[in-house]
Design a protein around this nucleic acid. Structure first.
Length: 591
RNA sequence: GGUCCGGUAGCUCAGCUGAAUAGAGCAACUGCCUUCUAAGCAGUAGGUCACAGGUUUGAAUCCUGUCCGGAUCACCA
């Protein structure tokens, strides 16, 4: 058991024995003792003062006395200040904890719990390359999956590719019109970027046609509908749905270009999936549920044949689930896909990593599944994350302010290279080693930057800050790891029982933090939130650096001290490495 | 307009299941490399926690209202 719950159990026993009051764990507040006071953990006394009719000081002294007397191996002292009982945990407890965990590679991980979780993330469109927003999504989804996996869940990472629809036809039409048969191969442009260029070309051509029609006296709305290129695109969508071979061939060809490009990007940023879904396969799913919903009285049909669900009683609106022409809408497809996923994997939980602009949609999806009585409805969880904005405001593809994912990674690699060369610490590295190091640092910086903020909140991406490798950053944590590894390379850590008997303040600070790691991991799981790990790992690295400048490991005062510090160092390196791995960040031996 | 989310130091963010004098990083200023990697450390300065009420022994945190910003409410996806 972790130390905090253990303290709570002991306190509860004392309260029961001395005053006859029953307390639950949540009624007891144990905080880390503020650095300006003596002690490790603090019990807040106020809540008992009233019912026990004792002054906080008296109560604190009584409880403190009883705790020290009953558990001399755990508590070595206490002090009471105002309504706070500050408890000092025995050094021997911390040393023993360190001794038994310092060389564990996966401290904090849990055995399989039999629960199966699907995590759907990334969800790209096949008409343009990935951008900064996708990166946040990919890093989040991957990390949450990894965090759950480390905590004993079986994970299936999945991805739904939006590979059909009007937006896909736009780039197809533009390619037909403007490409003269050009291909990624013939131009040397990465496939997803290549196709993205034609999507842009479509919009340019479309805009020109609309402007011309307006100049000829047409109103804007009509012009947007009547523009010839738009009509061609809509025709193409119909041809696609009808399965017209030349359209399908073109579609297959252009999508394959995009996938080649995506493969490169995914590999580079470390995204992977066990199961791919394609909207072209799933867009017709869900229609069967319309009939089921009608029979169960969950849906109703309007005179024009369209089918709806009334969610006004749940504080939402009426929502269309089937068009009057009998085709399904997005939400209907999602119902179908949820069922298909469940049929195949029988998941306990299904996490959808989708931006918060779809909060309403996901609420509706879950509600409909519940109303249809689906057994998996409760397990549907929308991991909603905020949009990434630039200091200048929202990214807008039409205004060309979108930050491209590949460009972003390239730039980070360049910065990593430049800074590494400036510092000149790894001049003996081979080309291959250098390349790997630049990648490790670049992606570490980028991932840490995007994962360190609470997913729920929108974030401002400041390019200048993102290339800073000092302070609250991935490279700072990586650097701390490299520093520790440097020490460990030079010295054997003895597996002998530590002979050390006491801990200095800065030594204990680190051990206390290390002990908290499993609790932090639990919090990250409960909140589906990687940022708590990023923050923790940064604080741990910071504490180690403080210790490092103050005390020497290699030239410690005694052999016992040296061994103790080596153990602290090794465990810190291990916890940094595993914490960072949960964020999808590698950690170098040297940098 | 309805619903939802947010407003904490110049900037980016923690803290939000109530608890001690509100914390980091960046930016600014001061120091520290003959000693295990200075991508580091130590220090100074910087706050009416949007505003007003309320609950409480105690509120950045909970409740109500107001102001400001954003998202959403498509037979789009």
């Amino acid at each position: 058991m972790s130390i905090v719950p253990e303290i709570k159990v002991k306190v509860a026993a004392v309260l029961k024995e001395m005053y006859g009051i029953e307390t639950t764990e949540s009624e007891l507040t144990i905080n880390s003792t503020k650095p300006e006071f003596e002690g490790d953990y603090t019990l807040v006394l106020f809540s008992f003062v009233k019912s026990l009719k004792k002054s906080p000081e008296q109560l604190g002294n009584e409880i403190g006395d009883a705790l020290v007397k009953a558990h001399p191996a755990l508590f070595t002292g206490y002090n009471v200040i105002k309504g706070f009982l500050n408890l000092t945990v025995a050094d021997s407890y911390w040393i023993c904890f360190l001794q038994s965990n310092y060389n564990q590679r996966r401290f904090g991980s849990k055995p399989a719990n039999g629960q199966k979780v699907m995590v759907e993330y990334s969800s790209p469109n096949t008409n343009k390359p990935l951008h900064l927003g996708h990166l946040r999504n990919n890093f989040l989804g991957w990390s949450v999956a990894k965090i759950l996996e480390e905590s004993g869940y079986e994970i299936i990472k999945s991805c739904i590719v939006n590979d059909r629809g009007i937006h896909i036809c736009k780039s197809m039409i533009a390619w037909q019109k403007f490409a003269n048969g050009a291909t990624p191969q013939s131009t040397g442009v990465k496939g997803d970027h290549f196709v993205g260029e034609y999507y842009v070309k479509f919009n340019d051509a479309y805009k020109a046609e609309v402007d011309q029609l307006i100049n000829e006296g047409m109103d804007k709305a009509t012009a947007e509908k009547e523009a010839p290129i738009m009509k061609e695109t809509q025709q193409m969508l119909q041809d696609w749905e009808a399965g017209k071979p030349e359209v399908i061939n073109l579609w297959n060809m252009m999508n394959s270009w995009v996938y080649e490009g995506f493969d490169v990007t995914y590999k580079r940023i470390g995204s992977d999936f066990q199961k791919m879904y394609y909207e072209s396969d799933t867009y017709l799913l869900g229609k069967q549920f319309v009939e089921e919903g009608l029979q169960k009285g969950v849906f109703y049909k309007k005179d024009d044949g369209s089918v709806w669900i009334d969610l006004t009683a749940d504080g939402l609106d009426e929502k269309l689930v089937l068009r009057k022409d009998g085709t399904s809408v997005y939400i209907t497809q999602d119902i179908g896909l949820a069922q298909q996923k469940y049929d195949e994997f029988k998941y306990d939980q299904s996490i959808y990593v989708i931006a918060d602009e779809q909060n309403y949609h996901m609420k509706v999806l879950k509600l409909i599944l519940q109303k249809l009585g689906k057994p998996y409805a409760e397990g549907v969880y929308h991991l909603s994350y905020g949009m990434v904005e630039l200091p200048t405001g929202r990214m807008k593809s039409r205004e060309g302010t979108v930050v491209d994912a590949d460009d972003m990674v390239d730039e980070m690699v360049n910065v990593a290279k430049q800074k590494t060369e400036e510092l000149g610490k790894v001049k003996d590295f081979t080309e291959a080693e250098l390349k790997e190091l630049y990648d490790t640092i670049a992606l570490g910086a980028l991932k840490f930057f995007l994962l360190r903020v609470d997913p729920k909140k929108k974030m401002i991406f400041n390019p200048e800050e993102s290339i800073d490798f000092h302070g609250f950053t991935g490279p700072f944590v990586q650097y701390t790891h490299a520093r520790i590894r440097s020490i460990l390379r030079k010295s054997e850590v003895s597996n002998q029982k530590s002979a050390a008997t006491g801990l200095l303040k800065l030594e204990k600070d680190i051990v206390i933090m290390l002990e908290q790691y499993p609790t932090i991991l639990e919090q990250a799981v409960a909140e589906h939130n990687p940022s708590v790990i990023a923050i923790y790992v940064f604080n741990l690295a910071k504490a180690f650096n403080t210790f490092y400048t103050e005390h020497s490991v290699m030239n410690a005062e005694s052999e016992e001290k040296k061994q103790l510090r080596l153990q602290i160092s090794e465990m810190t390196a291990n916890v940094i490495a595993s914490g960072m791995s949960l964020l999808g960040i590698r950690v170098p031996e040297r940098m």
